[in-house]
Every structure is written in C-alpha cells, then in structure tokens.
Write a protein that binds this DNA or RNA. Structure first.
Lengths: 342, 342
DNA sequence: GTGAAAGCGCTAACAG
DNA sequence: CTGTTAGCGCTTTCAC
C-alpha cells in the first residue's frame, strides 16, 4: 500500500501541487484561492486519507515540529509525570516530543543533545541536566538554540529554566523536624553533588539547623551514589542508629532514598517514627499508605512540565525574544504524615 | 551557526558527496574505497562535527529509524518502565522511539496510529491497544505494516504480541486467597472490559472459584470506570464491607485499584488484613512498604519491553518473515505479603 | 487564482 | 576507485 502524496492529490484533481499545499497549510485566504477549489481539495484530502510527510516538509522548511526531552530516567515517576504533562501540551500545539534518559551520565547526555539536535533536528530541548558545568548550554545559547532547563540549573548562568524552590522548601521541611522536637537530624543526599536541586536541599538543611541554633555536624550529612542507593543507605542508617546517641530524624533528598531508608530501618529492627523519624523530598502517591505514611515535600510536578513547554513554545514562536531569558521558580510544600509524628 | 552538511565535508576535501556518504554509511569496503581516503574523510567528519540529517536521509531511503510506542498513560509506572526498556534497546539498535499516551481513548489511539505512521513515518509500532476491536490492526496487517501488541491482545487475531499469562497468574492469585482461608472473595476490575488483560484476570478469578468448588456471585464482581477509580472503589468497598456477611478478601485488577482500595478501607475505619484481605494484580515498589505490605502479582515488566522491541526489530530487519507472527507469553507470579496473611 | 520549477540534504544508479 | 546525476515529498518564489 503506497503512501499518498501531495502529487497524488493534485493529479487526481487535475490541479497543481502548489495549490494543494497552500490549502493544506491554511494559506488559501492570503492567496485568494477560490472557496470551491479549497473545498474540492479538502474533500479529496479526506477521501484519500492524505497526511503530509513530516520528513519532506521538515527538509524543506527546516522545521521538524519536534521537541527533545532529556531526563535522568523516564521510569522514575517524577520524570514520567513531567514527561506526560509535556507530551500533552506539546501535542496540543502540534509538536511531538522525543524522550531520552541520560542515566545521570554526563557523557551520554552530551551525546543525546547532539543527536537530538543534529540528527533528529529537534527545534528545542527541555533538559534536566546532569552536566557538572554549563559548557554545553553556554554553547547552545551562543548559537541561539532554544532550550529550557528543568529541575536543575547552574547558578550565575542566565538561561531559561523551570525549577522548584528547593532551598526554601528544604529549609521548611527540616524546620518541621526541629519544631516537632528533633535535634540530632541526619540528611542523606546523592552524589554527584553538583546537581543544583540536591545541593540546594543540603543548603536548606544547613539553613534550618542554623536558624534553630543547632550546630551542623558533618557526620550527619551523607551522600550516596545514584547507582548504589540501597546498600549505601543501609550502611549509613546502621551507623547512625547504633551507638550511644543515635540520630532522631532523617531528611532524605528524594523518593528513592526514602524507600531505601524505610527498608534499612526495618531491617535493622527499628521503627519509624518511634526510633527515627523520616521526611522525604519528593512525594509519591503511595507515601500516603506506606507504613508509616511518609511526610514529604510535594513538588508541583505537572506545572514543571507545563511551564517548561509553554516557555519553549513561546520562544519557538518568537513570542519571547530569543535573547531574553525567563526563570520560573515554583513553590513546594511539606505534607505532614505519620513518619514525623511522635 | 549553520548546520554542517554532506556537501560541506565533500567540498572542504575536494571530493564528491557520494564518497563521503558511502564512507559514513560504512559502505567503503564493498565499494573498494582506498583506506586513506576513508581515513581522511572520517577525520574531517569528526573535525567538523558532522551528523547526517535524519529528515533528508529518511526522505531518500524511506527509513525513519523511528519506532512509535502507544500506551494508555506514560506516567503510569507500569508503562513508564516498559517504555524505558524499549528506549534502551531501541537506541542500541540505532532506533529512536516516539512515545504517546492514548488515555484509554480509542479515538485518540486511532489518531495517534495514523499520525505516527503517516506523518512521522515510524517504521513500526508497539502498542498497548485500547480499541474495542481489532479493525485497525487488521488493516495494518493487511498492508504489511510492522507492529507488536503488548499487554493486551485480541483473541483469534493472529498477530505479533508480547503479553503476560493473565489467566493463569490470576487464577493462582485467587487460589492463594482461597488456600489461606477466604471464601467470600470480591473482585474489582475496570471497564471497558473488552481489554483482554482485564477480562482474563476476571476469568482467572472465576476459574479459581470454580476449581475450589465455590459459587461465583455476580454481586462480588465489580467494574469501575478508568476515570473515576477512587470514588467508585470507595462505594464498592462500602457496600461489600457493610451488612451481615462482608467480603473476606478482595482481588483488584491493577495497582491504581489497590491504592484506592486501601484508601477506602482505611476511610471506612477497617483494617487490612484483619477485616478484609487484599491482593493486587501488578506490583509496585512501594507495596513492600505500604501498610500493610500488599500481596501482588508481579509482572516481568522489563521483559515485556525488551521482547517487544526485539520482535519488532527482527521484523524490520527481515530476520523474521513479515507474514509470519510470533506470540510471546510471559509468566507472572504472586508475591505474598502481609495484606493476605492473617 | 493558478502553475512551473527550484531546491532542502541525502542516497543510489550508473558511468567512467 | 571516484564522480555525475536524479529524485525522495514538500514549500516557495516567481511568472502568467
């Protein structure tokens, strides 16, 4: 079954390709094409089930109508939800998205950016960057390639971004622990620590301690590698919960860490919140029903996705000057549940 | 910053585009191109950071190197994980994927299929279909368009598919409930019920009852709509748990239903497993830590993804005859946790 | 109001 | 061994 092309339509109607093309692209009016020609063509297009070939169109116009999305791992519910929101809004604007997982591997991410840009010819990029520095993004900016950073950013680098106020929300989260009676509070974050959302969560932790007049103890801040969360968290918790002055509460930097932490505590024969209290950055549906329900900082996930496409589309359609930048910073709030309730 | 093209490379080296093209596509050998020419070209390609434009290449060759993936909702962890597995394997084979969510809307799904095929020119499709009948897929098959169904299929329709043995695993799950002492067992599934994975789970439920000599009671089988799970489940549970002979155990057809069920039971002031036991089809990480941990049928999610791309790639590369079909049926097993332990 | 023709970047006959 | 040429399906001047 051969594909229907513009030419097929034109021939079958005895008109030129130009005419059909014009009509398909809604340029009939401005070219003063007679209404009944328009109608005849449209009818035939429907009949023959014609749909323009995007490759050909893209080749000619230089527009691919494609947006690239690069996240750490699309199977992480956080990114899966963002991706969904982006997909919806992009499609509504006749853009399609191409999603890729970087696995927090800077090299792979670099590759992905290049492939999406050069090979797939995406018109813009939305990325949750795992790069240690902003070099690629500086380059992209220099050549005026549209992109939006999400979830993470580079301080002092002026670019389009949509992030959560990690600093403030983390401070709030740890303050909650302090206000409800904990003093020895540990924090588990992830390495590499250059990722802004993580370092800001750590900053927030320190701020909250300082605000409360508590001394920061380096032994109570641990960073575990992305690829060995389970085992590493287990060791940290073992260390923290044994000895004469065990940790009273733990603030973990994301949902995976929270699960690992629950597992570790259970395996150590301890109980949350009786032996140690837990608060997680990043909320997950099931935290409401976990044992115990987990107090967590809930991010406006959908909004991160929505805002980022909106921003990108505004740039692509030149609604925003390509040289100016826009920063969207969204609030996030602690949802208190039983894991921090004595 | 202009894009580097084949011609740029060729000109800068004083050779023809053909030569460069051949070398880039690893056809130097079969055309007996001299090794040092090859090297010179490759060096320049690196230097100039050249990458072929997929649109142009696709237009010429008719190959897009694109695979379309259509699932109900990419933000559902089940599909997100499948998608991830597909992405990985596809990329390794130099294919990219385009993911779309159908929202269980047959019309939208039809649209998606068409757009992906005609407009985006995907070479093959992997879809978890929400169509009530196999019409589109019959058409696709007729025109020899490669596709693989996952998770769901159409009885008596001979096509490529990768599914889980829903019937057997559901029977096993309900048998577990019976073996451990429950007699009045309710099941909550979803509508539309034409989705094979769901109807098979219901079948399995009935089979298990029959095998145990228990009578099927229509009042104990409920179907709730996809878009109103929470409220509907609440009503069902309220009905089942009140009255003189409350339900002793509930088998729910997916993870969303399980969460809704837990919520409902809690809000009714009852306890799992004391007042009612719960088993879920489809396991989720956090079920290990929920209160109580939920017994669930665990599917080989990654394998569904992996097998489906393998199959599709085999077809695309003509390793498999395009007219033959292959069915992959994977086992799934119950993981017993506290929600079914008295 | 409509059509002819060029060309986007690439590959594949074919020629030499 | 290497180059010339045509053309994939579309949009866009430009001409009538």
């Amino acid at each position: 079954m051969k594909k229907v092309t513009l030419e097929d339509i034109a021939k079958s109607l005895g008109v030129s390709k130009t005419l059909v093309s014009l009509i398909i692209n809604n340029k009939a009016r401005e070219h003063g094409i007679s209404p009944d020609t328009v109608e005849r063509v449209q009818k035939r297009v429907k009949e023959m089930n014609y749909m323009p070939n995007q490759a050909a169109r893209g080749l000619r116009t230089g527009k691919s109508n494609l947006i690239g999305l690069i996240v750490a791992d699309i199977s992480n519910p956080f990114y899966a939800k963002i991706s969904r929101a982006i997909e919806d809004l992009a499609w509504k604007n006749d853009y399609h998205i191409m999603v890729c997982s970087s696995d927090e591997d800077p090299e792979k991410e670099l590759q992905l950016i290049r492939i999406l840009k050069e090979k797939q010819q995406v018109e813009g990029l939305i990325v949750s960057p795992t790069q240690a520095n902003n070099e690629v993004f500086r380059d992209l900016k220099k050549e005026n390639f549209p992109f939006v950073l999400i979830d993470r950013y580079y301080p002092k680098f002026d670019t389009n971004l949509v992030v959560v106020d990690n600093l403030r929300s983390s401070t709030e989260a740890v303050k909650h622990l302090i206000d409800t009676g904990s003093k020895r509070i540990g924090m588990i974050s992830l390495s590499p620590s250059h990722i802004s959302s993580l370092s800001e969560r750590v900053e927030g932790y320190k701020n909250a301690l300082r605000d409360a007049g508590l001394k920061f103890d380096a032994a109570l801040l641990e960073e575990v590698p992305f690829h060995d969360i389970r085992q590493s968290v287990r060791e940290v918790m073992k260390k923290w919960l044994s000895g004469s002055s065990p940790v009273e509460a733990v603030f973990v930097a994301n949902n995976h860490l929270a699960v690992a932490c629950m597992e570790a505590v259970r395996d150590l024969g301890k109980k949350i919140p009786d032996d140690v209290r837990l608060i997680s950055y990043d909320d997950v549906d099931l935290f409401r029903f976990s044992n115990p329900p987990v107090t967590a900082v809930s991010q406006p996930i959908e909004e991160i996705g929505t805002k980022s496409v909106e921003l990108l589309l505004d740039i692509l359609s030149n609604k925003i000057d390509r040289h100016s930048t826009r920063q969207v910073i969204l609030p996030a709030h602690t949802i208190v549940r039983a894991s921090t309730t004595k």
